[in-house]
Design a protein around this nucleic acid. Structure first.
Lengths: 232, 232
DNA sequence: TGACAAAATTCTGTATGCAGCATATTTACG
DNA sequence: CGTAAATATGCTGCATACAGAATTTTGTCA
């Protein structure tokens, strides 16, 4: 199921360094995750044409399952297919990014209201745990792990909202922007502001104040635009 | 690009009777549209397992491009992939439908505000044209053409909003629900109420009253739930 | 030297074949 | 006669091979 695959990848977005070899069972999912990560990390640069032969060799798989994975990713919007010319890594223009952030703000806002209604206490505790861990990595200025936890928190909120369609489309948009948000350098103040947003978030969530959480999430997304606009 | 393919299919959702043969150029898109239509029309029933050999033979293509199309549709959420067992037409539970409608209401609401700001006069004139034609087919009680135009109007509003990410995710959710909305029988009164909604819609659009249009679209989507809930 | 045309190369698109797994059927046994 | 094991069948997953389109290279002429 699409949702699961996306959700799984969201939990483990940017694995550092070199990759474990492709697993033998469920090759499709493995290739999809790997290529998705390569796009997000920039190994496959935006606008770059994908050479099926080379990439297949690099991953140690033949062209057939690789092509299937490429079609899958094209449907997610990470690749574009031009007939006769194969797949190209999609370039996101500034407008695409801004448009996506507007939609994300809306979706997260809705999720904020729902999660306060529908989340179990364990869900919230789990999110709080991630939040605390994220704070530790903020204190250590460990940007990569911070980023991964940040994404995981947002995904967890969406999942805990109980609306899988919502989590699904959110996952697609979040995946599209992950690279840009990752490379988007934020100054110390902006980073601090983002952390402050998260503090408010978790507070609103724990008091199950849907309206407030929705507002914070939307505003948080608005500020994200300021953080990434220069890196597009 | 995913968006284009979806948008194209939205314009021509349920072509009646027998199909033109698969075109030779751009086989991928052709197969994707055809299989998507077969799912929407119910030729491929929800829960049904897809037999690659048979379906390929029926469409006159080999398994390779067919499998690629199946992965693509799985990413759209119309199919589910289970390793070793191939693709199965996704079953939408009542909750899935309701969840999707909630998200759709939100997205269309946002689109309503945007379209009043961003649409060109020609865009609006075009939508008005579709609306008038839809009314003629309502008068003739031609449910199929009415349905197609209805869907096209919603898609056109989304496209005219100028936010492609928004139109994109809307397209995915709309595609998932198309079959259910199509078979959802509405009584004469409910159908009339839907038409009345559309009248209000077009009025709000023409006076570019974003708030009003957003409200109408959201309410329209809420009522859709009543129309389809029994047919799930 | 630059531009155009033709040939050669490379890459994509599709079909086919085979291995392995899942399922259906048969057979053996309680 | 029912249940479980064993066998047989069928289907999916993957690799490879080939045809045709796209691109690059080479050659020729102005």
């Amino acid at each position: 199921m699409a949702v699961r695959a996306i959700a799984a990848a969201l939990d483990d977005p940017l694995d550092d360094a070199q990759r474990r070899p492709i697993v033998r069972h469920n090759l499709h999912d493995a290739i999809v995750s790997r290529v998705r990560d390569m796009i997000i990390e920039g190994t496959l640069a935006p606008g770059a044409r994908i050479h099926e032969g080379h990439l297949g060799q690099e991953l140690g798989v033949s062209r057939t399952p690789l092509r299937e994975a490429l079609k899958y990713l094209a449907s997610e919007g990470l690749l574009e297919l031009s007939p006769g010319r194969g797949a190209v890594v999609r370039k996101f223009l500034a407008k695409d990014v801004k448009d996506s952030l507007i939609v994300l703000a809306n979706l997260e806002s809705l999720a904020g209201e729902l999660v306060c209604k529908n989340a179990s206490d364990e869900d919230i505790a789990q999110i709080r745990k991630m939040h605390d861990e994220m704070l530790r990595h903020y204190a250590a200025r460990d940007r990569l792990v911070y980023f991964k936890l940040n994404q995981s928190i947002h995904s967890a909120i969406l999942r805990a909202s109980g609306n899988s369609a919502l989590a699904d489309v959110h996952g697609v948009l979040q995946a599209r922007l992950r690279r840009i948000r990752y490379i988007g350098n934020e100054s110390a103040e902006k980073w601090a502001a983002a952390v402050a947003d998260h503090e408010e978030m978790i507070a609103a969530l724990e008091e199950r104040n849907g309206k407030r959480l929705a507002k914070i999430l939307a505003a948080h997304m608005d500020r994200t635009w300021d953080r990434v606009r220069d890196s597009i």
